[in-house]
Amino acid sequence: MTAEAEILTELRRLRTRLPQVTGALTASVDGLVLAQDAIDDAESVAALTAAALGVAQRLTHTTGRGAFRELLVQGEDGYAATYAAGSAAVLTLLALPRTNVGRLHLEARRAGARIGELVDGALERLETS
């Protein structure tokens, strides 16, 4: 299975485990979609994720909080959350207002780590080939 297909499997698995997550995508840190599941206009979401990530990274660095881990935004009609996934990618999730945020964090951190391995692994293979 290609890395992209494996990432998509991971996104779908996450959505099955957490039905309150209405959409999931993995983007490169520069804002390009690597894989997405049930997100309308994924390109825009990925681009905005990269913009938010830029600000978040500057904020964590300026305030001495170390490398970026996660970003949670709550709107009146739900959540948009971004989690670090290795060195080159992020995982962005859209969730309903009544989402169990505790579980969202637990599942997304796990998925982010797994997706990070997949993306970093694929990049390494590209470099060595």
Binding site: T99, N100, V101, G102, L104
Partner: peptide, 9 residues
């Protein structure tokens, strides 16, 4: 002590 609107302790 847990807040069950968010699932966080």
């Amino acid at each position: 002590l847990v807040d069950y609107s968010s699932g966080m302790a």
